[in-house]
Structure formats: structure tokens, C-alpha cells
Design a protein around this nucleic acid. Structure first.
Lengths: 342, 342
DNA sequence: ACGGCGACGGCAACCATTTGCCGTCTGGGG
DNA sequence: CCCCAGACGGCAAATGGTTGCCGTCGCCGT
């Protein structure tokens, strides 16, 4: 009934002023005791730390961020939080950020450029830098983001913006060679979202690799990069004469296998399927999926490291070495979804 | 070489002072034009908004948060980001938060109370409130969190802290009745993490339901709430005489089925399996999993709504109605992993 | 003995915004 | 004609830290 007359359990945390008063020093000294080790006498610093600890003082990120905008926050924007592709990426990115004293915000773009734009609008002012993981934004929009905050894009190349990408061409080439080696001569590619840069890369590499090896190649789609998308792809495949298919990603591949199995097509006997990404789950679906493996863990670590580099480099501007895309190798993991042509 | 002499493309956004100067008013008026509609003359406000828009002004969340701590940030802490159980929860929670003008931070606790504690330490000062989704923290630790910020716990009951839980007892009862109806008389429960409150609830309900129906009941575990955990469970099950099993959650159930299949046990012919949660994927594993469905989507929405209620209610304190657990119903989804006893 | 320097701590400004309070102006009622 | 109220806009303080600059003090070298 009464006003907030509580004494100890107040929800407002103590400030440096409280600590300063209790320790008999000036607030600035308290601040320095925490943020500038060595600048204040060791004994004094010790006493301050002791008092602060007793009072339960914790430095407020808001106050700290005010003067120079240092919020110690980074963000990673992923196209789809539920896509296992991002699991390892998020975790490794998070770890790297934490190890450097940053907190990583995970932002879900729901596979929509509109949602991505809105989310960025909300998040950007808060953070010091951002990783755009497989963004659905236009190059121009991404450059606009990069103008506001240090930015790293993942699995995409945008002029003047640092990026981390898998070697799609190399991976696709391996996949096609693998299928060719099994005797397949008629291949389809199941395309992903039109807005996906990686999809464009993969399709191009697919076309080139098949051409060089003298194979017939078709493109089906686009399909949503989800299991549901894969189901539609299965439908489309039934009327097709190809004996092997490469999907935009593992989710589509798995969805396709499910759909085809349901339609009575047996995999890999009737059709070989190759995925992309080697996500969590691709090894225990039935049959286990042959897929082009991306170094997922390195992806997150690498992206955040590049971001941190930018943050540390005051003279960002025009160092060309920094914005050249970092190319991470891809390798083929052969599992049960591909077999010699019947 | 020179100093930062750039003109237009500066990374520092315009402030209310810039807008005020351009519009010929005081900064306070600009502030009010945005945050206190009606307080300033409609024409003036209009002019200010126009000028602000031209300048590309956006109110800074940091500055705004300073005076009264309003950061418009909420956090949801999930036990494991990669667990599909949380997908729908996160999405619905996020939507609810955004609709109310808040941004939701997603925080991963990596199934570890240590990591959860550290993450909270980092996040708590930033946010106005927090949802603890299946926390691995002790009750005392949770109450300590609740003392710092408005808090809602999910799938768990902690005295004096508002919570949202599924009706585990009811769901488990349905599952056991279902199995009994199929002629099973020897049942095992595959336990989840010791730190899981829901696990305790489910095991207790399992024991009671089996006792009342006159069935034999065993408890195996604990197992990690992951596919890997399910694989270990499969191992443990092979030496057991039960004809049906209920798993702590779907991930364990699916892992168990995989493990058993690999060991030559056929499901549901040799063993019936029931999961918990009805996660994304439980319908397309082989065989499709019979499971106790939680209203995942409502979970997130509900939790955030209760949080928002707390934020709006200044007189929180001791209104008992507010902290009574909200019980969400559970129902059984019968699929292919259960069958009549052989 | 004195000058200088380095270590250390305090003062005050600064960051972007909100808000309590006050001054001014206008209009209407008595 | 005066008074009062209400609308509106400005001043300045407050929020919680950080940091440039300055003063003080003690020590060392000359």
C-alpha cells in the first residue's frame, strides 16, 4: 500500500556515486578504478573494488555507452532462426564476441527483406557493429547499413563491404564431379530464394561444372529454403527425367527426399540427392544426406573477428585488404543419399 | 591523413539539438514533439517532424534510456537455442514484444546454469524485463533475478515469480492412458536433465498415472535433452523388458528411436515411444512421433504479455493473482510411433 | 635548496534525451 | 478592465558513466 519504502531490495542499482561516497573518493576515481587499471593507486583501487562489491555495484552499460557510443553490443542478423544452418554460426559468433567482451544480439529476419529492414532499424542504433548472415537485402541497402555501422556480410559479396563466404564454386564442382563419377548425366538444380546471393553463385557454378563435364543440366524453382520448399520441389521432380539433383541447401534436400519417398520414389536407388551446408540433422535423416560441407563454426568466428577488426581500426576508410571477401573452403561429405545410377 | 573532415556521410546521427536548431525551437520541444503527442502545438510538431525527417533524425535508444532506464528491450533466455522446442516460442514472443514497441533479445544458455548466469549478468542491466524459458537456475537464483527485473518463468513454478507452464500432469496422464489402452503394462520414463523442473513434474505424473492404472513403471536416466541423449537412452532400453516408453521430450524420443532402429529394434512393433512438446520435426521423423503437444505459440505470447503487464503495473508488489502460474493445456497427438502391444 | 617531473585524485564538461517548473501570451469570463 | 486559466515553449537539472585538464604532493637530481 505504501510507497516504495523498501530499503535493501530496491530495484535501482547503486551507481558510481554511491560507491564513491562509501569509499570516500570522487566518482571519477571509481570509474577509473574499473576502466583504467593502473591509472589509480593499487590500494585505492582495491578499496574501491571492495566497497563496490559490498554494495553490489555493477557498471551500467547505458551510462557507459553514452559518451562515446560504446554499448559493447554486436548483432548478427540471420535469415531464419529456425534454420539449423545458423546454429553453429550463431554459437561460434557468440563465443567470439563474448571472449572479446561483447554481447551478441541474435536477430531473426524471418526470410523477409521487410522484416530484416525493420529489425535493423530497431537494432542498429543500439549496436556497435553487425553481421549480416545471408541477408535478403539489396546491395544498396546493405551498403547503407555499412555506412551507419561497421558491417560484415556472410555468404555474399557486396562491393566495399567486408565479407565471409564459402567457396560455392569449388563445393558445387565437387558435388557435380561426384555425381558424374557415379554415372549420372542428367542433373537438376533445385533453386533457393531469388534474393539469395548464394543461390545465384551455386546455380552458376552448377551450370559451369555440368557444361565442362558434358552433362545435361536443368534448373527448377525457386523454392523456399525450408522443408516445405523441398516438398514442392519433390512434386516438380516427379515429372523430370534427371537421375540426380543438387539442392540449394540441406533443408530443401531433406524436404525433397521426404516428398519423393512419400510419392514412392526410392532414394538413392531412383534418384541421387546432394544438399548444401551440412547442417545439424543432415547426418541422421533417412537416408543420411550427401552434402557440401561449409565450415560453419569458422564462419561465425571469422565474421565476428573481422567485425572486431573494423571496430579496432580507427582508420577504416579505404584499406582494400580489409574488405576483400574471405573465402572459406568447402568439401563434399559423401553419405547415403547418392548412389551409382541404376 | 587529415582529421575527420567528412561532411555528409558521417556515422554519427543527428541529435535533437540539430533538429531543434534547424526547426528554430528548443531541444525540449523536439523531444516532446516525439514522445508527448499533444503537448506541443500541432503545427509546431508537424514542422519539427518534417525537419527531423529531412535530417534523417532517429531518436537514440541510449540517450532515451538514460533518464529512466527505459531501453525498450526485453530478453528471453532459452536453455538451448538449437532445440526446436523454442522456435515457435521465440517467434511468438518476439512478435508480441515488437507489437508493443519492444525489442526482444534472444539469449542462449547452452543448457548450462553457469552460462545462463553469465549471460544474465551481461544482459540484465540492459533490459527492462526477462523471460526465463525452462531455466536451469536454482529457485533462489531465479528469485534473485526477479528482484532485479520483472521476470516471467516458463515451464516451471517458482514461488512469487509469475510463470507460464503446460499442464504436464494432464499431458502425461493422456500419454499413459493411451499406452495402457494399447495393451502396454510395462512402461519406462526416459528422464531429462536433473536441473529441469519440467522433468520432475513429468516423472511424478508418470509415476502417479501408472500407479493408478496398475501398470509397472521404471525411470531411466537422466539423459541430455538432445538427440545424443536419446541415443544413450536407446542403449539403456535394450536391456529392459518394458514394451512402451515415454521420453522427457521429443528430441530424446527421436534420438531413442534412431538408436533403437540402428540396434535392430523396430518401432512401433517392438516398442512404443511417446515424446513431449510436439516440436518442429516430430511429424516428419520416421516413424512420426506420438507426442504430448504443448501450445508452443501461446507460450511465447503469453509469457511476454505477462511481462508487459508487470512493466505497466507500477504497484507490482504483492498482487497474488499476478504471480499465480498460468496453466496452458496439453493434448496428445497420436502418430506412428505407438501401436498395440505385440 | 630548488626546479621539475611523475603519480594520483578531483573538478567539470560531455554524451542524448526527458521532464519539472516557470514565463509568456492569449482569450474568456466577471 | 482586470483576473485567471490554460496552452505552449524554453530553461535547466538529472540520468550514469568517461575523460581532459588541472592541482597537489612527494621524490629525485642538481
Amino acid at each position: 500500500m505504501g510507497e516504495t519504502g523498501e530499503t535493501g531490495s530496491s530495484r535501482t542499482r547503486p551507481t558510481i556515486y554511491d560507491v564513491a561516497r562509501a569509499a570516500g573518493v570522487a566518482p571519477s576515481t571509481v570509474s577509473r578504478a574499473f576502466s583504467r587499471p593502473g591509472r589509480v593507486n593499487a590500494e585505492t583501487a582495491d578499496r574501491i573494488r571492495r566497497v563496490a562489491h559490498e554494495l553490489g555495484y555493477r557498471t551500467s552499460p547505458i551510462g557507459r555507452g553514452l559518451p562515446d557510443g560504446r554499448t559493447a553490443l554486436l548483432a548478427i542478423v540471420v535469415a531464419d532462426l529456425t534454420n539449423p544452418f545458423f546454429f553453429e554460426i550463431i554459437r561460434s559468433a557468440e563465443k567470439t564476441a563474448i571472449d572479446s567482451g561483447y554481447t551478441l544480439l541474435v536477430v531473426d529476419a524471418h526470410e523477409s527483406s521487410g522484416a530484416e529492414r525493420r529489425a535493423l532499424e530497431r537494432t542498429l542504433p543500439l549496436v556497435e557493429g553487425v553481421v549480416l548472415a545471408t541477408s535478403r537485402l539489396s546491395d544498396a541497402a546493405i551498403r547503407a547499413v555499412a555506412k551507419q555501422r561497421p558491417t560484415v556480410v556472410m555468404n555474399r559479396v557486396v562491393t566495399d563491404v567486408p565479407s565471409v563466404v564459402t567457396d560455392n564454386a569449388q563445393g558445387m564442382r565437387r558435388a557435380v564431379e561426384h555425381l558424374a563419377g557415379l554415372g549420372h548425366a542428367r542433373l537438376t538444380y533445385l533453386a533457393g530464394p531469388e534474393a539469395s546471393w548464394a543461390d545465384g553463385m551455386r546455380w552458376r557454378a552448377f551450370r559451369e561444372a555440368t557444361r565442362e563435364l558434358g552433362l545435361r543440366a536443368w534448373r527448377l524453382g525457386p523454392f523456399a529454403p525450408t522443408l516445405a520448399g523441398g516438398l514442392s520441389a519433390a512434386q516438380a521432380l516427379t515429372t523430370h527425367s534427371a537421375t540426380a539433383t543438387v539442392a540449394y541447401n540441406d533443408l530443401v534436400a531433406i524436404g525433397t527426399m521426404r516428398g519423393l519417398t512419400r510419392l514412392g520414389v526410392e532414394i538413392p536407388r531412383d534418384l541421387s540427392v546432394v544438399g548444401f551446408d551440412n547442417i545439424f540433422g543432415s547426418d541422421f535423416c533417412t537416408p543420411p544426406l550427401t552434402t557440401v560441407a561449409s565450415p560453419l563454426r569458422h564462419f561465425g568466428t571469422f565474421a565476428v573477428q573481422r567485425l572486431l577488426n573494423q571496430l579496432r581500426a580507427p582508420s577504416s576508410g579505404s584499406s582494400p585488404g580489409l574488405s576483400a571477401p574471405a573465402l572459406l573452403p568447402a568439401k563434399l561429405v559423401e553419405r547415403g543419399s547418392t548412389a551409382r545410377r541404376a
